[in-house]
Amino acid sequence: MSKSRVLKQNLDKNKKGTNKWTILWFVLPALLIYVVYTLYPIIATFNYSLLDWNGASGISEFVGIQNYINLFADSSFWQALENNMLLVVVSVFIQIPLGLVMALVLFSDVYGKRLLNVVFFLPYLMSTIAIGLLWVYLYSPESGPINKIATFLGLGDFEWLGNADLAMLAVLIVIIWQFSPFYMILFKAAIVGIPEELYEAAKIDGASSTQQFFFVTFPALIPTIVSSSVLAVVGSLKSFDIIYIMTGGGPGNATEILGTYMYKQGFVNLNMGYASTIAAVMFIIAFIAVVIIQLIDYLRKKKGVFL
């Protein structure tokens, strides 16, 4: 057998005969872990959501959709859902614009950009638990600097986290502090990607820097704005740590979000069935958000429209 024939056989063997088993061996470790720790648990959650199941006694009983009926009549659930939506609104209308402003500042001719680059980004690098604890003390009515400033400005002092009307606002400020830098780096990456020629052409046409922003920079950033906005929905469903550590959902249920409410029902009250119902609803909302993301993405690519 000539050498070239051996070579050809080898190539054919590799091209056609890629054995199903070979593929399986490569994918198997990932698939196994994914099935055990993600897919199975999701299915199990839906299954448990149909049970009246007290974790303390261990007795469970099939109740069909009763948990869902109870959930939709549960005012704490609606309060939590409302707060989750508030998180989304705040990230779309405050964090994303603030992130954009921060990114633009870093592209302006401001002095000390190297330092600003680091300081602006720092909050995003701290663990949420550390952030929560730090701000609990910043808000402290007795020794916290925020009240000191509020008093100095003549606003009076407040029991920030203990006041049902202020607690959510207080927590939202912390969330803005933590996540604006994240949007900042997204925008920085997007701005770097804008071709220099566009600005040059705009300058030749006599566009002022404001016009350059609205006619060159901003349109180029719309895809980033759209995808970050929709990602905010999923992000809000994943949030838990900051509320858990700062207020535990209180006072009352003023700062409750779905994540903390689910945890409370499942691991504090041991209503495993009811908690699973909340978890299942969270999954469904995330799923719907994803479908919407995909749809927007599809329309954008098909028709070239910016939604």
């Binding site: 994918v27 990932a30 698939l31 994914y34 720790y37 993600t38 199975y40 648990p41 999701i42 199990a44 959650t45 448990y48 999923v234 469903l237 994943k238 838990f240 779905l258 994540g259 689910m262 945890y263 499942g266 691991f267 495993m272 908690a275 699973s276 909340i278 978890a279 299942a280 969270m282 999954f283 995330a286 799923f287 958000a289 994803v290």
Partner: peptide, 21 residues
């Protein structure tokens, strides 16, 4: 298979918490 894997990015941890526990 690829889509199945990347769909995992959108799963809230809470949807798996009790079964994993």
């Amino acid at each position: 298979l690829f889509l199945l894997f990347i769909a995992g990015m959108m799963v809230p941890m809470h949807a798996t918490l009790i079964p994993i526990f």
